[in-house]
């Protein structure tokens, strides 16, 4: 009798244990299924292809009020040096998306007109450490500002996916020796005696870009690179991370811009191609 009671008790407790374990197991299974549906499915190649196709459709033909991207950025997204429009093929999708968001932002609503740095060029000017404000960033380009405002979130995503998957092969151009030598010195070593870091230390070796924050310089039209540095100096573009590029652009002379842009235009560079 005693033993059978023990058996009964142990059976009951076993069932209890089993039920607890099944509960935990079911929780695990459910969380695993959720993990699958949430993280694996959205990045599957099929949906990427769908985004890419939708982006291609929009880039080639436009839609309604949205004009096509091709006339300015080229059939293969290679950019147009004549009108200083950038290459988009092979850029990081997050970078393209961020730029479109920044184009769409209204600068009047976000920018507070507080001059953060007292620009009296004495030995040690003072900046106000407690007025560090992280602005979301704006970028001035009349055509793109209007265009980006009518793009939906999905449109931006599709375009970013489409252009990031395009292949691009740069065609290096010839420049005179002195320009290239000075450009290389700036690109690899910067101007240390002025506190200016090299371009390659952030934009990657050979200016090939690094991650979502640092875009490639190689393969971009010379006119585009110079125009962007000019925009930073004029304060028309301020969507860089921690205002790093603004500080650097302030240090560049007109000669530096030409030399370094020529150096990167002289490099061979390819992306997404065999």
């Amino acid at each position: 009798m005693k033993s059978s009671g023990n058996i009964k008790r142990s059976l009951v407790s076993g069932i209890k244990k089993i039920s607890i374990w099944t509960f935990f197991l079911s929780l695990l299974a459910v969380s695993f299924v959720i993990f699958l549906t949430q993280s694996v499915l959205p990045v599957s190649s099929d949906s990427q292809d769908l985004h890419r196709l939708a982006g291609e459709q929009l880039a080639l033909n436009g839609r309604g009020k949205i004009p096509a991207c091709v006339p300015c950025h080229g059939l293969q997204g290679q950019g147009n040096a004549g009108i200083a429009s950038p290459r988009l093929a092979g850029l990081h999708p997050e970078y393209i998306k961020k730029q479109l968001e920044d184009y769409a932002r209204n600068p009047l609503k976000t920018r507070a007109f507080v001059e953060p740095i007292a620009r009296d060029y004495v030995k040690t000017p003072r900046t106000y450490g407690d007025l560090t404000v992280f602005t979301p960033g704006t970028r001035y380009a009349p055509k793109m500002n209007e265009l980006a405002k009518i793009l939906s979130v999905d449109d931006r995503h599709n375009l970013a996916i489409y252009y990031s998957k395009l292949a691009f092969v740069a065609s290096p151009k010839a420049y005179d020796f002195e320009t290239l030598e000075r450009g290389e010195d700036l690109a690899l070593r910067g101007k240390p005696e002025y506190g200016l870091p090299s371009c390659d230390s952030c934009h990657g070796p050979g200016g090939q870009g690094f991650g979502a924050i640092f875009p490639p310089l190689a393969g971009q039209p010379v006119t585009y690179i110079i125009a962007q540095i000019n925009q930073w100096q004029a304060g028309k573009r301020d969507n860089d991370h921690l205002a790093l590029m603004r500080n650097i652009a302030d240090q560049l002379t007109d000669g530096d811009k030409v030399n370094v842009a020529a150096y990167y235009d002289n490099l061979s560079y390819s992306v997404n191609s065999e």
Binding site: I117, Y121, V122, K123, T124, P125, R126, T127, Y128, G129, D130, L131, E181, D185, L188, R189, P192, E193, Y194, G195
Partner: peptide, 26 residues
Amino acid sequence: RLSLPTQLTQVHVISPGEYFAPPLVA
């Protein structure tokens, strides 16, 4: 902190010729 700034940071500004310039790699 939208009050008047109080913390002042000393920022280094470099004037030409302040630092030694090593020779070029070229």
